[in-house]
Design a protein around this nucleic acid. Structure first.
Length: 459
RNA sequence: GGCGGGUUGGCGGAGAGGUUACGCAGCGGAUUGCAAAUCCGUGAAGACCGGUUCGAUUCCGGUACCCGCCUCCA
């Protein structure tokens, strides 16, 4: 069996991954707060952990892996959006979840095994909070319930900082009812205009971190294998999750492996909501950048390193996929992916090395050798060269018109009327259609700047 | 200030204490009505200063610079 090694943030080391139960490998990844379109930075963990999901399925069997990714549909940002627009909260979150699915599907990400919504687990959150209070790890104060960080000796272990260090940073919310400035909210009161649920502490709503602890416990148990997310969640989100879960379920180990992807940069700066330097996955798709291209670019950097999105890389990925698809038209995937590529992925998801291996295989194919079926199977393990990702960006009637122009041009070429052939090419090129001659045949595909409207220019 | 990550050829980006990464771009060639694609060949690196070693880009220490977290964030 393939040996998987993963860099565990909790130990800061690369460790051999041995699941608690090989018949049920369990992974939890923090999903989106659903109040807006996913930006490209949000897409990185989705694609990264999708690859891990695929690798785990490959190694342990598809039916032996459970992947949970939550939707946070209770949050003050959502409340703010609702208040600002007058729209119903459920309508906002339902719509946003629909967008999220559509956009992540376009990136070729498999749907997780389960996608729980926080609002369906309020009862479990309240139960966990009550349990933490009973165990002396949390206390109620002025309608709030707070987690007492000093009650958990290992607090700060994940992010490598002590409570004293954190307080020295001193940018925590000052609240008189906190016993320690680092204590964080498990439950907070809601006024009449704010969504709330009845609880032993009055009508209120959960704090940010408790949902993941409650849902992971409910769906994966007190001990599971992998917890993933962006490195910016390491503190405080994951630190707090650990504190809650470890104290509520001391019998369990919570997540054994913590995996964190580094940030996505734009012009060298982190893409983030607060900086406002973000664009959405939908923006790119609407510009004609296929989800598969986005995916290949995202996988071009190992997940543990920051990656810069650039237009150059987008163009390179486009050219690469064009060539690869041309090599394997009509080829069905073989039974097994390339061993060297699997080894690269098993070594802490070294996707750049895996892609390099694909390049080598493609080169062999271009030279007339190689194993096309194995190449396709290998690419599929990365979620690439999937028929569903090819993208039909050209409506059938437009495609028919292009086909007619291609045929007319072919006729002109065969009549050696090259002036006419070039005129037709110019029309197609102007509309962003790439035309490629190969002997007696010609193929075409929409380029990134494809615009059907310009096909109507006079010949 | 505390904690963490990084610095590889023109660009992107890996592995390995000693032997070609890989891709893009460039250059030379093949092919081509034109163009694209494709194929062949090819130059180019390891921030800086020390140390360990027969030998370091790879290990250790220091310096500089960059980035992230400590506040909603993937």
């Amino acid at each position: 069996m393939t040996t998987i090694r993963l860099h565990n943030t909790a130990t800061r080391k690369k460790e051999v991954f041995v699941p608690l139960d090989p018949a049920n490998v369990r992974m939890y990844v923090c999903g989106p707060t659903v109040y807006d379109r996913a930006h490209l930075g949000n897409a990185r963990p989705v694609v990264v952990f999708d690859v891990l999901f695929r690798v785990l399925r490959h190694v342990f069997g598809a039916e032996h892996v459970t992947y949970v990714r939550n939707f946070t549909d209770v949050d003050d940002k959502i409340n703010a959006t609702a208040a600002a627009t007058g729209r119903d909260i459920r309508a906002i979150t339902d719509e946003t979840i629909g967008w999220y699915h559509a956009d992540m599907d376009a990136l070729g990400a498999l749907r997780p095994s389960q996608e729980p919504r926080a609002t369906d687990y309020i009862a479990q959150m309240i139960a966990m909070i009550a349990d933490l209070v009973a165990r002396g790890h949390a206390y109620a104060a002025e309608g709030h319930v707070l987690f007492a960080v000093e009650s958990y000796a290992a607090y700060g272990a994940l992010s490598g900082r002590s409570i004293e260090d954190m307080i020295a940073g001193a940018r925590v919310e000052v609240a008189p009812y906190k016993r320690n400035p680092m204590d964080f909210v498990l439950w907070k009161p809601s006024d009449d205009a704010t969504p709330g649920w009845d609880s032993p502490w009055g009508r209120g709503r959960p704090g940010w971190h408790i949902e993941c602890s409650a849902m992971a416990q409910e769906l994966l148990g007190a001990s599971f294998d992998i917890h993933g997310g962006g490195i910016d969640l390491q503190f405080p989100h994951h630190e707090n999750e650990i504190a809650q879960s470890a104290c509520a379920h001391p019998e369990g180990s919570f997540a054994r492996f913590w995996l964190h992807n580094e940030m996505l940069l734009v012009e060298g700066k982190k893409m983030s909501k607060s900086l406002g330097n973000f664009f959405t996955v939908r923006d790119l798709l609407d510009q004609g950048v296929s989800g598969e291209v986005i995916r290949l670019v995202l996988l071009g950097t190992q997940y543990g390193k920051p990656m810069d999105w650039t237009d150059t890389r987008r163009a390179e990925a486009e050219a690469t996929l064009y060539r690869w698809r041309g090599l394997v038209t009509g080829v069905a995937p073989g039974a097994d992916p390339d061993a060297a590529m699997v080894a690269a992925l098993a070594d802490d998801l070294n996707t750049p090395l895996a892609i390099a291996r694909l390049h080598e295989m493609a080169k062999a194919l271009g030279q007339g050798g190689g194993d096309a079926a194995c190449f396709v199977a290998s690419a599929r393990l990365l979620g690439l060269l999937d028929p569903g990702l090819a993208g039909d960006r050209v409506p059938a009637d437009v495609a028919a018109r292009i086909d007619a122009l291609i045929a007319a041009r072919m006729a002109a070429r065969q009549a050696r009327d090259f002036a006419q052939a070039d005129r037709i090419r110019a029309i197609l090129t102007a509309a962003g259609v790439r035309v490629a001659d190969s002997g007696a045949a010609a193929t075409w595909e929409p380029g990134p700047d494809f615009d059907a409207a310009r096909l109507d220019l006079p010949a």
